[in-house]
Computed example of a mutant assay.
Amino acid sequence: MQGSLEVNNPIQLTAQKASRFKLSSSMKRNVMGYLFLSPFLILFIVFTVIPVVQSVYLSFTYYNMLQPAKWIGLSNYSVLFLEDDIFIKSLKNTFVFAVIAGPLSYCLSFMLAWVINSLRARMLFSLAFYVPSITSGIALSIVWLYIFSGDRYGLLNNLMLSWGMISEPILWTTDPDTIMPVIIIVSLWMSMGTGFLVFLAGLQNVSPELYEAGSIDGITSKFQELWYITLPLMKPQLLFGAVNSIVAAFGVFDIAVALAGMPSPNYAGHTIISHLFDYAFIRFELGYASAIAVFLFFVTLGLGRIVMRLLSSKDQ
């Protein structure tokens, strides 16, 4: 038995040396790749990973920036879900906004990209739809505040009064019943952003030969081409657009504050990000604000994982 072990030991040592040599040679070949990747990794760790970990830690503490963080366990989460009625209101508002504006902006971005891709002047139309997304929400809200002004001189009220649709002006941005619809409308108009460009790029990368082959196989309409050819080939772009829509829907803040104020009347336009901003930068209760941020992080992470399972392209 000992003799056999002694015979096998040199073979094992040789195999280990060979594997180490292969690993080191592979690292040497890819050293330039690691060097080019290192700036992103360093910045990602410093500005994303470390703040997320620190936020998770602070969510279990009481921290007001003036005193050292004090460990209080799950007290922040207990207050958040059991005692904070404003947070429950903001949670409801955010989910209503996400359920309506998220899918609508996603489908609208794709359908507009699909239509524009078939036009000759698609670059001009793409620019026209993309510009609002890169314009400041505060600047655009000035235009929309004129449209939804609550007096009779507001553009929408003036038109509806002149057409006899209403008898008195509607307080669009101060009535709790109309605040959220106004926010959704403005957000949809500004939603033609990165997802729209990604959809447009994905549509342009689909080979025309595939559509010709499809017509030979019996595809007769544009909608059949969309269902059987375009959508299956655009799963990566559809996944990116879906994740982007989820993040944007749960991150609505500046438009809601610019249109309805902070706090909005009866907290009708109060969102999770508004609640987080209130406790973080107005009350300076950073431990409680971190608990809100951690909750929002796990909500978006969970929804993102569900979307990744639905739109995964592993079967291709």
Results as ranks from 00 to 15, higher is better:
29 R>C: 09
111 M>K: 08
90 S>F: 04
34 Y>D: 12
65 M>F: 02
207 S>D: 15
138 I>H: 07
7 V>A: 15
67 Q>K: 02
40 F>K: 00
163 W>D: 02
8 N>D: 10
233 L>P: 05
136 S>I: 08
1 M>H: 07
181 P>V: 12
145 L>M: 14
13 L>P: 00
207 S>V: 04
310 L>T: 13
247 V>I: 14
94 T>P: 00
52 V>H: 00
240 F>V: 10
190 M>L: 13
147 I>C: 01
308 M>E: 13
299 V>L: 11
287 G>Q: 09
247 V>Y: 10
39 P>V: 04
265 P>V: 03
268 A>S: 15
61 T>I: 03
231 L>D: 01
58 L>D: 03
227 W>A: 09
244 N>W: 12
312 S>K: 09
153 Y>R: 14
58 L>S: 02
39 P>A: 10
272 I>T: 11
99 V>S: 04
190 M>N: 14
54 Q>M: 14
233 L>T: 03
268 A>I: 10
213 A>T: 07
237 Q>V: 06
72 I>S: 09
115 V>K: 13
244 N>P: 00
175 D>V: 08
138 I>C: 00
307 V>H: 03
124 L>G: 13
181 P>M: 12
162 S>D: 12
168 E>K: 09
191 S>V: 05
158 N>M: 11
35 L>G: 11
233 L>C: 10
227 W>Y: 07
163 W>K: 08
212 E>D: 15
243 V>Y: 11
196 F>I: 01
38 S>I: 05
178 T>E: 02
23 L>G: 10
109 S>H: 00
143 V>N: 12
228 Y>W: 06
8 N>Y: 14
127 L>A: 13
104 L>W: 06
107 C>H: 03
256 A>L: 10
86 I>G: 03
300 T>I: 14
159 L>Y: 12
225 E>G: 05
184 I>V: 15
291 A>T: 09
129 F>C: 05
290 S>L: 10
114 W>I: 02
92 K>R: 14
117 N>I: 01
264 S>M: 08
54 Q>T: 10
42 I>G: 04
185 I>H: 01
6 E>K: 09
194 T>I: 00
